[in-house]
Design a protein around this nucleic acid. Structure first.
Lengths: 202, 202
DNA sequence: TTAGTTTAGTGAAAATATTCACTAAATAAT
DNA sequence: ATTATTTAGTGAATATTTTCACTAAACTAA
């Protein structure tokens, strides 16, 4: 029962929508509605959900709260995931401030930067450290997920340190390829590639 | 000869890598090397490139400069694409400042925000306007691509205005679903969904 | 020259993902 | 009650994508 990346991606987006529905006290939603949200068909949505062994209700659709909890359980999203960010430039601080992460099950427990000045100047409730302490803090605090928002030249080195510290996954905002061992989950968010992906389909 | 989204996405990432190689005066690169960069196989890379009618050289690989130019031509990435950003909060200004866009063929020609205060305070070489002028400026300046970095509640309204102004594509950083007509290219960059996508695969 | 190596190109096979067509359940309407 | 409608569940068909297996070209080394 291994899930395809496509399925996981769709489920993650549906999960976000379920949170929204739950907040608005909506109790049921149909596969068709989800399909609209993630840009696919109702068949696919039902296949995705059923591939996780989860079910809905005839003529009512899926129970929002129940499905959210079950998906969270299945995808290990219900627990809070300790996260850190490396690189406190504009993008890094923007992400650091992205208030909804905590609601969304990600607990930002540390920030890192190579500039002591920047660390001193920064104004955030999250503890910030010089990058020299990265590996230790990641270990001490059992941080599972690292976000990289450093300049391209530093990205690989930071990734190596995060991995040595023991993170299981990396979200990479720098526009360069990072090499990671097989067991580490890597996902790239390359703004320029994204803009090109849009422009190429005009 | 319609290209799949997967192919386009891979090609966009290869294109970025070709720019890097070109800057470093590297003349040839193999399908295997590209495969490493985009996380696929050499077969797939060759299929992708050949599906665009482009070819490499036996025993040498692909000619960096030539391939970059040809891909740029095929995917319409070689011309400069006029772009604007809406929402000048932390994330918006971080993106606005992302210096490499210009190099990468995207010309940021305007920024918009709903807060007059923010517009007055902001310090950037890019012209900024109140959001009331969005549609007009987009029309006047023939802006083709709009980046949305506004709070969720405003996202759909901004998208509608961008589309009325005549953009062909939208890159949406807000974590909500936006409805757009078929002919408009939409791509979402949802940070929370991305974090979940990583965590779900731990 | 010849043999060996590297790398692209590509049709065919295999794997994967999506869509379809149908069933069943629940509810509403008449 | 009965019929119609909506919506999930799912095996099968279809479509798509990826991988494989092989060929050809270009170059190197002996």
């Amino acid at each position: 029962m291994s899930l395809s990346n496509n399925t996981i991606e769709r489920i993650c987006r549906i999960y976000g929508y379920l949170e929204y529905l739950e907040k608005n006290n909506i109790e049921y939603a149909s596969s068709k509605e989800f399909a609209g949200i993630v840009g696919t068909t109702d068949y696919s949505v039902r296949k995705d959900i059923s591939s996780l062994g989860l079910t809905g209700f005839s003529r009512r659709g899926y129970a929002v709260k129940l499905l959210k909890d079950q998906l969270g359980e299945k995808l290990k999203l219900s627990r809070t995931i300790k996260t850190c960010i490396v690189g406190l430039g504009k993008l890094g601080t923007a992400i650091l401030d992205y208030e909804s992460f905590r609601d969304d099950g990600f607990n930002m427990v540390a920030g890192f930067d190579s500039s002591i000045n920047k660390i001193e100047r920064i104004h955030t409730p999250i503890e910030v450290f010089p990058v020299g302490q990265l590996e230790d803090i990641v270990k001490q605090r059992s941080i599972e997920l690292g976000i990289i928002a450093v300049p391209p030249v530093a990205a690989q080195d930071i990734a190596d340190k995060l991995i040595k510290g023991g993170v299981k996954g990396i979200l990479n905002f720098s526009p360069v390829r990072i090499a990671v061992p097989e067991e580490i989950v890597l996902h790239n968010m390359d703004f320029t590639a994204a803009l090109r992906f849009v422009a190429a389909r005009f």
